[in-house]
Nucleic acid binder design. Sequence first.
RNA 1: GCCGGUGUGGCGAAAUGGCAGACGCACGGGACUUAAAAUCCCGGGAGCCUCAAAACUCGUGUGGGUUCGAGUCCCACCACCGGCACCA
Length: 990
Amino acid sequence: MMPGLMSRRQYPFHLIEPKWQQHWDAEQTFRAWNPSDAVPASHPFAQRHGADAMSPEKIAAGQAPGKFYILDMFPYPSGAGLHVGHPEGYTATDILARYRRSQGRNVLHPMGWDSFGLPAEQYAVKTGQHPRVTTEANIANFTRQIKSLGFSYDWSREVATTDPGYFKWTQWIFLQIYNSWFNPETNKAEPISTLKYPDALAWPEGVTGVVVAQAPPPVTSPAGAPACCPPELEAKRRAYVDSKRLAFVSEAPVNWCPELGTVLANEEVIDGKSEVGGFPVIRKPMRQWMLRITAFAERLLADLDTIDWSDSLKEMQRNWIGRSEGAEVDFKLDGHAAKIRVFTTRPDTLFGATYMVLSPEHKLLAQITTPEQAEAVKKYQEFATTKSDLERTELAKEKSGVFTGAYAINPVNGEKIPIWIADYVLATYGTGAIMAVPAHDERDFEFAKKFNLPINQVVIPKDLKGGAIGPLEAPFCEEGVAFESPSHGWRLEDMNLPKDQQRLPWDFSPPDINGLPTAEAKAKITAWLESKGLGQKTVNFKLRDWLFSRQRYWGEPFPIIWKKGADGQLYHEALPESALPLLPPTLEDYKPTADGQPPLARAKEWLHLLDGSIRETNTMPQWAGSCWYYLRYLDAKNAAGFVGKDVESYWMGTAASARSSVASGQSEHSTLKTENSGTTPGVDLYVGGTEHAVLHLLYARFWHKVLFDLGHVSTAEPFYKLVNQGLILGSDGQKMSKSRGNVVNPDDVIGEFGADAFRLYEMFMGPLQDTKPWNTQGVEGVYRFLGRVWRAFVDEASETDYEQAAAAHGDSATFLGQIQLSAAIQDVPATPAQLKTLHTCIKKVTEDLEGLRFNTAISSMMVFINDAMGWEVKPASVYRTFVQLLAPFSPHLAEELWAKTNTKFGIQNVSLSYAPWPTFDPARLVETEIEFPVQVNGKLRDVIRIQVDASKETIEQMVLKSEKAQQFLEGKTVKKIIIVPKKLVNIVVG
RNA sequence: GCCGGUGUGGCGAAAUGGCAGACGCACGGGACUUAAAAUCCCGGGAGCCUCAAAACUCGUGUGGGUUCGAGUCCCACCACCGGCACCA
């Protein structure tokens, strides 16, 4: 920006903003206070609430200020610096934080850094510079930028996920998860010590073992297990425990991204490509750490009903969790003892199952495939498993598959149906096998058409009277009425076969579901299957366990070591808590090793422990640190625990908080707001982008539930209310990107218009949740508004003096004091009209803040100033109240004007940030006479002035006399007159 | 394909079922100024008719419906945005 072209400043924001930022820093204005904190008497919080406000007595008596926890999604400190999307959410939360503070709440509004991440590591691979150096430089830049916006963060609680003092506790929480199992009977996570061994793994009678002290101690083994012989049994017991842990090792096909050199969670793969960078992802079997999030699927789903999130976000999580109810059904095989179990959501269509499909990975394939088909099946399996997810998606247009040569018996009608394999059946969902009902399933229909398999219709639409059924053009997948169900293929000839050759017993009687609506048919056939021992009702989820390890350097190392058991097999063991934090080793080279090991494997000394055990070389994914950072803010410096108990229960807990699907057994459609305190359990408001819908927000809820079950936190859910800010697009309506050249740098905007204008513009653009394009001229608009506010307050002549001084001696904050308040601002009573203008504004701003409607709050302040700037005499009380309304939005300017009025009128130095929020007085809005629209048949014809309290009769008379209305009444009869008090009147004529 | 959301001036938008377009941008006109910038004031939905104004007609994606009255509620459809996508 060339200075010569820069227009004159609307007001000296370049001096005002740093001045107040320094003041807030020095005063620690925005410190949030924990229980038992002694508040310094000089602090404005103490001046408002008393120095003993947070004493245990006051908290116990419910006399401490209510908490308000308002949280931003902490940023990854990238090298590119802040973009305009960050301050959108941050400004919204800051406005609300300042508003609640002025309402008397103890506001917790923290900021920190999600600082583990790939870019710093990639830079390290290229340059050899330690990621910590890059990360710290980026954090410093982000801090500078964020501070320049004047947010009311409590910086004393700043956290960075890369700090050893932080990730010590990330590792500690991992160990809590590792040392837990999910008890299906209580539907809760429990310490692994409560796990009971099956009888087969019980210690033989009389065996007593000496517990051998090990380094590290066996924190993981269930109580009572002697740590000695017999070794085979010990290994089996260990394997059993390890198979139940919430953190477990699994060897399975995973998402491998060669470009990134790491595996990825399902949530991080989009359309077969990595969410970061968009690189291809392939399936590859690998040994990886998993977290058993699937055990919590039901609760993660049900508890969505207890929190205040947007419908679309809840729906995204619901879809991702993907609950579906159905039945598992066993099919006998023709000529084999084995059975194949399938999962179906439509057991009512069992009569229409004309073939079966197994996933190419199905375990029984080797056993059942006939010799003639073996070659083809093998080829198909190879074809299917080597395809990447991306190729799979692309090939999805055309169905493919191979016949195994084997047959299954349909349990309801004895029909022999062919068994195929096809990649449209997934190994990882349900049982990895389906019964195909081509008449009533899109995919089965397509497959049947392609391979010429029979299609039997067994459901008809409700409104269709039976009979008129021809060959199906398309599958009928909706609910309907069961039809001709028992008749298809019912093999009467079976009754004539010798008993051992019968596919079904001769007295076998399938249920008659004909004519039943789908729901009833499902229930009846499922009950029948259960009674015959052929199947049962089942619930399936799409959610998969969380793949938790990454082949990276710049992440939390696992506090896990590997040892060799007596049987020669490796097994894992947790490090003791005293070994935390486990730091990553120092490396020269951050690349993976030549043989494909993670970079940590390069550090030979770090890797091998003295006792011969080896460290885990994988690291945790970036999501680990963000799973609990909102808890660390509560007690950021606590060295003895991840968070103090009292502190946690003050900020997160309330009486209503323990409610969850576990306690109640079912979801509750209730807002959790507690009656007396007005506070909510968990984080009161969480604002961030929608990109974390099924990543961070799902993972954090999962960890929180584990911590809740183990008694470490007081609420079942971490985030009570969540709002997604909308995307800010470039001025061309496209997403901002370097390649488009439409990126707006916040530093430039602040330099030209100031932080207050920047904040105000981001809020004025439109509703917080909406996507909206950036418009620089729009910034100028709100900047002009702030200029008008300034000029409404200050004396023009003194400002000219200031400018001359600044021009002569250089710009300096010391000259700011030369600017005087306008002489029009006087300590006089306000007129009713002025009070009406003010209270209209108070009402609107207050209501809009409650509803997070910042754009309309701002427009009401514009309306106020457009009126108030023209007043010849400006009552100081009215002007000061307006400053309070403006303060949450544009705090620097508000502080400056507040201070100037303090000085002029000798008002004791009341901190603006803690001054009580203005109350709206309805009496100030009462009018005696109002404009009253007159409609004829719903069309506006006239506006008359009437007394507010005019009777209906008076109004009727006045309205009928209205000249303009008269024209439309001529020659017609008035049928009725509808009078809506204080709104309008409508004359209905015929 | 499925799920969710959104459709209002040239643009961002506003309207508990009650005067559509508040507020802002852009644009046009005026005041101030030697001039410009800045500032202040005024005007802008479309059509029709006018020298001009008044008046009138139409108007919130499309088509129906409910209502004295619909941007708002109901039904059907269209378009766009976001998410999921062979999950049986």
